[in-house]
Design a binder for these strands. Structure first.
Length: 256
DNA sequence: ATGCCAAACGCTGTTTGA
């Protein structure tokens, strides 16, 4: 069973790329972020024609998350995190699919830092950690997949110096990512590839893709019951090199 | 120290964000 996370950066702008990727790689479950579309602008018919059931939590202009499942309808278990003081941001949706619990997560970017956007990011992350603990306690296979907007370590970025002041690699951001890991969640890419530079995002600006100036911010975090079934993980890097590509590449796991 | 880029919205530029 293949489960992927893909920040599409505009589902309507990216629809041909998304459909092509679904057809080529046939993920069983795809978690999408940055739909940049209101609920009634989600391309439901095209997704269904591609063979996928879907649930989505849209928002006009920015944010927006979805879960697609091949041949079945995901059963929604939650939209939005508990106790969100600002539920206007569509950044979390969760479903059960074939006995798995899957969340599609779009963590706030947090730039510029310091400032209110960074504070919002950290508070949002804290609520995610709290909710993750309640999922963890159920001892089910759970996959928390999405754009975490966190570069976990210096090995996950093309230049520590260039990014030193960025919200994505501040100690406060990394500390929260580590807290998830220490709570028992497995970073699937690093479980399969413990060292080496693996990127999931390359900025559109300054020729970042051409010079491989990327970083790793899209993560699939696995509960123990899911991690027990992990057989492979990777990044569909070729997708980033196409015409009208998202600035993120799809990132995936294979479970037994 | 600044801009690089892209999408949505709605209209030829502004807003928002990464």
């Amino acid at each position: 069973m293949k489960i992927a996370t893909f920040n599409v950066n505009g589902i309507n702008a990216r629809l041909p790329r998304l459909l092509e990727w679904l057809e080529e790689t046939k993920p069983d479950i795809a978690c999408l972020q940055e739909l940049k579309a209101a609920d009634d602008n989600f391309p439901e018919a095209a997704i269904r024609d591609a063979g996928y059931g879907a649930i989505w939590h849209g928002q006009k202009g920015f944010n927006g998350v979805a879960i697609l499942a091949r041949g079945v309808d995901p059963v929604e278990t939650r939209r939005g995190l508990p106790d969100d003081p600002d539920p206007s941001h569509s950044r979390y949706i969760e479903a059960e699919v074939n006995g798995l619990v899957v969340a599609s997560i779009y963590l706030p970017n947090g730039n510029p830092q310091p400032g209110p956007k960074f504070d919002y990011k950290l508070a949002w992350f804290d609520r995610l950690i709290d909710h993750a603990a309640s999922l963890f306690a159920r001892e089910q296979p759970v996959i928390l997949a999405g754009d975490y907007n966190v570069i976990p370590t210096d090995e996950d970025v093309f230049s520590v110096r260039a990014m030193a002041g960025d919200a994505l690699m501040q100690p406060e951001s990394r500390e929260r990512f580590r807290r998830l890991a220490f709570a028992g969640w497995t970073d699937a890419i690093r479980a399969r590839h413990p060292s080496g530079r693996i990127y999931t995002f390359w900025d559109y600006q300054a020729g970042a893709w051409a010079r491989d100036a990327g970083f790793r911010i899209d993560h699939l975090m696995l509960s123990p019951a899911a991690a027990d079934r992990l057989v492979d993980a990777g990044v569909d890097k070729a997708a980033r090199g196409r015409e009208k590509a998202s600035d993120h590449a799809p990132t995936w796991i294979m479970l037994r």
